Computed example of a mutant assay.
Amino acid sequence: MHHFIFKSVRASIFLALALIFTSAQAAQLDLMPDDYVVKPDTVQLAFNLLQRRQIGAYVNGSLPQNSVRISPFLPAIPLAKTVIESQVASIRLSKFMTLGEFTVAPVLVASYRNIENTSSSYSALVDMQKILGEGAQGVHGDIGVGGTLWLVNQPAKHEFLGVTAFMTLPTGDYDARKNINLSENRWRFVLSGGWVTTLGDKWVNEFSPEIAWYGDNNAYRDFTQSRYILNTQLKGTDELSQEKTYALSDTLRYKITPSIHVFSMAQINRGGKTYVNNSKLSDAADNTRIALGLLFYTQGGNQWMLRYQKDTAIENGLRLADEVTLRYMHYF
């Protein structure tokens, strides 16, 4: 019986870990080139397909060989050979509107997620497949809503300055007694900005700062505690909280032709320490990320984007080894 309970606990630890790390180590608003360019009086529908591979749990910039607990969702074991792969499909609906002298665009976002653990064994005594579980899939329960207000909208100069407020709501089903939860059971508020300027006829620069605040999850269960392992019927009685996260991104885009653009992006992410019952863990992201990509426009209001990105430096958490994103966007 205890063996069955422990396996269930391990599966739950893995899924929560994967969901947190796939979102918390990067800017919460995964902005793409052209997102802050105004398309007057149009509806914007975007589909994203993302393939992400993350490896190794870093502590203070290196892979620890000893057992260190760096996350509320992670047991204190060596994780140098951890490999987590995820596929995310998301849909974003937005509409550009005029409000007095300003342009605004409300937005609604939902996503589907599939996660797989392909970790190899750390040693004969540490079986990563058994400890972290094989993975999970399902619809992410939390819906995101928000909008952007443009303070500067000068299409003739191709200069735009927008401010975005976005909130993720705890709308999904959450039960601390279940092995799998695809909802975080907390709200998240993100304030972001985007400044688009041209550099001559061929170059476009897009600069975006961001800050995110996180609510508390008061129904969290610390599965590393023996009281939950011994009694699976207990409801969550722990509190999970997280400090603010910060991100700064800059994208430089080159127009090969009016319909074909290439771009590069650099991003830094800081902050985000988590606490369990006011006990601080060393899991602030503190990573640096780069990306390369291609934008392709076709007639009829269609846009295609292919992007590759990876972490070039990381202090804590899982390192993004590879991520490929394909986005299709339609304006009508």
Rank of each mutant, 00 (worst) to 15 (best):
L182V: 07
H330T: 01
N181M: 12
S90R: 07
Q299G: 06
F6L: 09
P209S: 10
T42R: 10
F21V: 02
P106T: 00
K310M: 04
I55H: 08
R53H: 10
F223D: 04
I91S: 10
S259Y: 07
A24G: 08
M32G: 04
R177H: 12
L252T: 00
M128D: 02
Y275S: 03
L49E: 07
Q25V: 02
D173K: 15
N231P: 11
A165C: 08
G271P: 11
L326C: 11
A110N: 11
I70M: 13
H140K: 09
D238L: 04
R113I: 03
Y36M: 03
D201P: 08
T171F: 08
V109A: 14
L63A: 05
F73R: 06
P72H: 07
A219N: 15
S12P: 03
Y308P: 06
F21W: 10
Q233P: 00
L19M: 14
P258V: 00
Q309K: 12
V324Y: 15
A284D: 13
G194E: 06
M97T: 01
L29A: 12
A219W: 07
S62N: 11
Q154N: 14
F160N: 02
K95R: 15
V83G: 03
D250T: 00
D311I: 02
L74H: 04
A219T: 09
E315V: 01
T164W: 08
V9Q: 11
D222F: 03
N302P: 05
I131L: 13
T198I: 01
S120M: 01
E184F: 15
R227F: 05
V38S: 02
S71A: 06
I180C: 09
